[in-house]
Amino acid sequence: QVALSRTQVCGILREELFQGDAFHQSDTHIFIIMGASGDLAKKKIYPTIWWLFRDGLLPENTFIVGYARSRLTVADIRKQSEPFFKATPEEKLKLEDFFARNSYVAGQYDDAASYQRLNSHMNALHLGSQANRLFYLALPPTVYEAVTKNIHESCMSQIGWNRIIVEKPFGRDLQSSDRLSNHISSLFREDQIYRIDHYLGKEMVQNLMVLRFANRIFGPIWNRDNIACVILTFKEPFGTEGRGGYFDEFGIIRDVMQNHLLQMLCLVAMEKPASTNSDDVRDEKVKVLKCISEVQANNVVLGQYVGNPDGEGEATKGYLDDPTVPRGSTTATFAAVVLYVENERWDGVPFILRCGKALNERKAEVRLQFHDVAGDIFHQQCKRNELVIRVQPNEAVYTKMMTKKPGMFFNPEESELDLTYGNRYKNVKLPDAYERLILDVFCGSQMHFVRSDELREAWRIFTPLLHQIELEKPKPIPYIYGSRGPTEADELMKRVGFQYEGTYKWVNPHKL
């Protein structure tokens, strides 16, 4: 086992960053958080920038500027975001240094004079007029057009580079997404736009490419001749908990499936790229999406959770019991969808996408189930092999396979070949997804960000279904809070070829 401390991990990262040409360590950078008073800024962006600063992973002359409508001070920003920093008493001095680099400007999102004030403020910072500028839009999409237009007109660096990070949702359907994309691309070049999907920053999602293309053993079996089906799962054990009003506007397909799960599907299904260059990788992902037809209604199961009468606390409440959810809402909190990649490698292999709230566990994984062994000599005792990439929690890679049961006879039983990170790298604290992705933006690497043509294809696949749901308002199937979801989803999976045995229990190697 390799035991690495946080300091050692960050030392390795620093070495990698400083050796590259793309990370300008000594240049002045300004990180501007648009929507600095909001939840995302408070819980994710400010803490992430602090962790990067604490670990010495930001360029040395980096300033952080918050911008929002609320009249706040840096002290206010500190008060609301610091509880999420997880700072230790030993880091007190470092924390003071961090907040000394912070400033805040209040202004409207659609007022040109406010942006001119913001620009004057940035120019007044040390070497601010020639600094590289990175704008993070932690804002609702309704203000994107006004904000990007004003940034472009008043706040661009004339000497350094300018980059803009856009948070999902990128529209509600193909038409609104196209409108937003066309607007942003009329102001910024594609190499300046970073559409963030934080799932692409997760260690195991990034590991998929290495697993596939750096190991000879997987190449020959990664196709329709050997793989019976692919299941991509995202499960949350909690409901909307008072935030249903926002969720109800989008629903589970827009929230998770059309982005996170579809991105994971691309990494499983794509061909080997010409290189690890950002556009070479994204070219292959677009090719996969172009091979997927629009979702067919007979390959869809929609569910909505109801309270568990035997549960406790939140578990007793259904989705419609959330006071922020519109009365009688038919918005799905669970969806199972089957897609097919219609190309030579994957023809006929079902890709089953499942996601839901208020389920029995927290889990995100990719599961490849292989065909049955031909010419069975073990009297149907063999179960199908599976390769599982567990994204969260407890990152893991393992192969479910058959071995001989101890004893006199040739009785096979299920076991696993474990390729888990935790076994080799004991207690290594890896940077989280937002840390990686923000560092990628500083480096100018777009590999783990969504390109406009990729986004367009993703919406093309799901828009007809979303429009049909909005028009017909089908009643989702009720499922109990804390269950596996509607049984109809299991029946759909069985119908397209997935075999669920229920006889195997994964042993978490992190707890051995």
Rank of each mutant, 00 (worst) to 15 (best):
R390F: 04
L267M: 12
K290E: 14
Q380W: 09
M264A: 07
R436A: 09
A433F: 04
S278A: 15
I480E: 12
F498E: 03
K475N: 13
G328W: 13
T324Q: 12
L265G: 04
P393A: 08
Q380G: 14
T331G: 04
A358P: 04
T487L: 14
I253C: 10
G307Q: 12
E361P: 01
V286C: 08
K287Y: 06
D283V: 00
E361K: 05
L439P: 00
E312I: 13
Q304H: 05
Y479P: 01
P464S: 11
E491F: 10
Q392M: 07
E470K: 07
P393T: 06
S278W: 07
G407A: 08
M264W: 01
V391S: 03
N298V: 13
D280A: 14
T330D: 09
K494F: 12
K405H: 10
L261H: 05
R451M: 02
V450M: 05
Q446Y: 05
N385F: 04
K473I: 09
P478H: 11
Q380L: 07
C382A: 15
N308C: 12
K426G: 15
W346K: 04
G497S: 11
G303E: 04
K426N: 14
S445W: 11
H467I: 08
M264Y: 00
M447P: 06
G502N: 14
N259Y: 02
F498Y: 15
H448S: 12
P273V: 00
D310W: 11
R254Y: 02
P486H: 03
V337A: 12
E284R: 07
R484F: 03
Y434M: 01
R327D: 14
K404G: 02
N343E: 05
D440H: 07
E386S: 05
P323M: 15
I377G: 07
V301R: 08
F498S: 06
E344A: 10
S278F: 08
I377C: 10
G356N: 00
P273E: 03
E414G: 09
G307D: 10
N360T: 06
K363R: 10
V366R: 03
E294P: 11
L267D: 00
R254T: 06
L261N: 00
C382R: 10
L339G: 06
E470N: 13
L465N: 02
L492M: 15
K429R: 14
I389N: 03
V256E: 08
W459A: 01
E413Q: 13
K405R: 12
P309Y: 11
G307E: 09
H260E: 01
G348Y: 00
N308P: 07
R282N: 02
Y425V: 06
D440K: 06
V281Y: 05
V325P: 00
G422P: 09
V373P: 11
Y319W: 01
V388M: 00
L339C: 15
R345K: 10
T324S: 13
G311Q: 11
K404E: 01
L265N: 00
G482A: 08
V288F: 08
D490T: 10
K285G: 01
F409Y: 14
C355L: 05
L492G: 00
G375S: 14
H467T: 13
K383W: 10
G313V: 08
P393M: 04
P464H: 09
E361L: 04
I469S: 10
V397I: 14
P393Q: 07
R367S: 03
Y305W: 06
W506Y: 11
A335V: 11
V338E: 12
P464G: 12
T403E: 05
D376N: 13
Q263R: 00
V281S: 06
G502K: 09
D418W: 04
A396Q: 00
P476M: 07
P431Y: 10
V397Q: 00
N308S: 13
Y340D: 05
E435F: 03
R456S: 13
I469T: 13
P486F: 03
L465M: 11
D440V: 00
V281H: 03
F498L: 11
R282L: 00
G444C: 06
R451I: 03
E312G: 14
K505F: 13
V496R: 15
M257K: 05
D490M: 10
M408H: 11
V300A: 14
L437E: 05
S483Y: 05
R384T: 05
E457S: 09
E472L: 14
N394Q: 13
E454S: 03
N411G: 15
T399E: 07
L353N: 05
Y340M: 14
I377F: 11
T463P: 04
E413V: 12
P464A: 10
E457H: 13
D490L: 12
P486L: 06
C443G: 12
L302W: 07
L439D: 02
G497N: 14
K405A: 14
V301S: 10
R495W: 09
Y425A: 06
G348M: 04
M408F: 15
E457M: 11
V295P: 14
K426C: 10
G311A: 10
L466R: 00
Y398C: 00
L465V: 11
D279A: 09
I389D: 04
D376C: 07
G303F: 04
Q446V: 06
P323T: 15
N277M: 13
D321G: 09
